[in-house]
Design a protein around this nucleic acid. Structure first.
Lengths: 167, 167
DNA sequence: AAATACTTTCAAAAACTATTGAAACTTTAA
DNA sequence: TTAAAGTTTCAATAGTTTTTGAAAGTATTT
């Protein structure tokens, strides 16, 4: 496999992986392309390389910026905008974890807190209570673990501690 | 909010959450329904409760069984099959983590190993090499962490250790 | 062995999601 | 101020995924 084929394969694989995680193909592919591009690319270049329309490119580049994974770069003497992906993979992973936490964990924690208030003495009510209670405890634990992970990122000791743990 | 509304809301929320994670709505809703049902339900009851067709119910119940989240239950003197969800939320979370690891992490680790072999001295080639190398290191770390988590589940000491860490 | 009760399959339809491309908008340079 | 260069939006279209429902299949009972 040569470089061109490898790049192609990487873009395809990242795109497929994305769709398993509720991220659309174009968005994941643009991300992949920017990850392996040594320099920032213009909208035009992205469109060309991935064979997608201007609107599609624009929309998904903006989504990637919302996720904090891609940044606008302005080049001196150039009118158009260029896009550059965060290349530090640990940061990328952290950013994704943080965003998904905010977008998904937080709302569900809210809903569960509401559902916890329901009291009902029937068998069905008892099972509901148990399920919601257990779910709350698992989700709260997951949330705390993510917090720990985010803190580790900002804290030298924790970081090293986790590195040893994961070796 | 009364029990009926609460059950409804839980099923809806779980369904929505599922679609953000590449799991179809019906599958997630059936799972939610079974989680809060004190006893095993028949295909008929699932169809009725969620207002879905027989085919749809059947297909997704089977998918849930593939994921190891739902089991068939046979009742004495009953011809039809009943379905019961694993209720231990820690086990549910573990099962999902294990399955996604198998279905997604493992294939991507394979692809990355292949892409690592590509050597190319151009700037583009250098960036490709760096990105793939870093990605490999992050994914390998994530994989090891998941392994640790799965082991913790099977090992008293690790389990308690992690519990303390997550407190 | 035929009727009954239930499960599974699968092609077609419906629902949903992503993509296009042209028009509107914004910024810059002459 | 106007033309040129570039960006954004959005309604229409294309593409994908899910759902339906009827038909085929399987097991159980009489």
């Amino acid at each position: 496999m040569n470089l061109t084929e490898g790049r192609e394969k990487f873009i395809q694989t990242w795109g497929t992986l994305g769709s398993n995680w509720g991220i659309n193909r174009a968005m994941a592919q643009i991300h992949a392309l920017l990850l392996i591009s040594p320099n920032a690319l213009s909208a035009e270049e992205i469109m060309e390389e991935l064979k997608i329309s201007r609107g599609n490119a624009n929309m998904n580049v903006r989504a990637l910026m919302d996720w904090g994974l891609v940044f606008k770069v302005l080049k001196a003497g150039e009118r158009r905008e260029f896009f550059y992906a965060e290349k530090d993979m640990w940061k990328v992973a952290m950013q994704v974890v943080k965003e998904r936490r905010k977008r998904e964990l937080e709302p569900i924690i809210g809903t569960i807190r509401e559902l916890k208030k329901i009291k009902d003495e029937s068998v069905s009510g008892k099972q509901f209570e148990t399920t919601i209670h257990d779910l709350d405890s698992v989700i709260t634990k997951a949330d705390k673990t993510i917090e720990l992970l985010i803190k580790a990122d900002e804290n030298w000791f924790m970081n090293n501690f986790l590195k040893i743990l994961m070796k």
